[in-house]
Amino acid sequence: MTKLPLDALSALYASAAASRLYDEAITELQHALQCAELATAAGESDALVAAALLHDVGHLLLDDQVGLDEVLVDDYEHEKAGARYLAPWFGPEVTGPVALHVAAKRYLCAVEPSYFATLSPSSVRTLAVQGGAMTADEVDVFERHPGSRGAVLVRRWDDMAKVRGRIVPGFDHYVDVLRSVAIR
């Protein structure tokens, strides 16, 4: 096994990119920590807690955030970049939900008509460049994917993890969780 890059992950989540606004209210770091806390509070597995924590690591790697006052024209596929980055250290129970959390948003828009109305303005904006709601064929493919359940959970936590001022444990709180699900 390649050594788990805890120092590299900690550095990414302490970087300037992690301090930028994720959406209208909170930073990338705050968003990640809130997602992980929601997964923990739901009693989910360490793998899903890790996926919730790391689901947007691709944004930090790509440093792809576009200001809310700027026009968003491209999807840099942060979910794929993040899953690829994590793959040497984590199995599909972590990387699957990371890779599919954007698809899960598109899926939920297709299968739950009221879901779109719950999206933050930032999520609505990104949905447009991510392909919009899935087609019926895409829904079928998504539902058959073994990581779809975890991706939908991560997506729901993603939507709820945008609360300014919410107090949650820091990144170091999750180091043992990350170690516990790392590929041995």
Rank of each mutant, 00 (worst) to 15 (best):
L6E: 06
A51E: 04
E28C: 10
A99S: 13
V152F: 10
E70L: 10
P169D: 03
A50W: 02
Y13K: 01
A50S: 05
S123G: 14
S114R: 13
S114G: 13
R144E: 12
V102S: 10
D64Q: 04
L127I: 00
P92L: 14
L100T: 07
S180V: 01
T118H: 09
E28P: 02
T118I: 06
S10R: 14
D64T: 04
Q30D: 13
W157V: 00
T2L: 14
L33E: 01
L48P: 01
S19L: 11
D172T: 14
L72V: 05
D74Q: 15
L100S: 03
R179I: 07
Y76D: 13
E93I: 03
A99W: 07
A83G: 06
S120V: 01
L29G: 02
R179P: 06
L178V: 03
M134R: 08
L53S: 01
R155P: 00
D158W: 00
S19H: 14
Q130G: 07
H59R: 12
F116L: 11
Q30L: 08
C35A: 09
P121I: 02
V152I: 15
F142A: 02
A14R: 11
M160E: 15
V124H: 10
D23T: 01
A151M: 03
Y85F: 11
D69Q: 11
P169R: 00
H78W: 01
L127Y: 04
E138H: 01
D158Q: 05
A25E: 15
T27L: 07
E28R: 12
H145L: 06
Q34L: 01
S122R: 10
D23P: 00
S122T: 11
A128H: 13
A128N: 13
R179C: 07
Q65W: 10
D64N: 15
Y174D: 05
H31F: 02
L29C: 09
R144S: 10
G91M: 03
V152T: 09
S122F: 12
G165F: 09
G82M: 03
T2I: 10
S15E: 09
H55F: 00
Y13A: 05
V129W: 05
K105V: 15
D159H: 14
L6M: 08
L119W: 03
G170H: 05
H145C: 02
A151S: 06
R144D: 11
L108Q: 08
A182L: 06
Q30N: 10
G58L: 00
V141R: 15
G43W: 05
E77R: 12
G170L: 07
L61G: 09
D56G: 02
R184I: 13
I167N: 12
S122D: 14
R155A: 10
H31L: 05
A50F: 03
A52R: 00
A18C: 06
A32R: 03
Y22H: 11
R149F: 14
A18K: 04
L29D: 08
R20H: 12
G67Q: 10
E24N: 09
R106W: 08
T135V: 04
A16L: 12
L29P: 01
E77G: 08
L178K: 03
C35Y: 01
A182G: 07
F142S: 03
G150D: 04
V66M: 07
E143H: 04
A117C: 06
A17Y: 08
R156N: 10
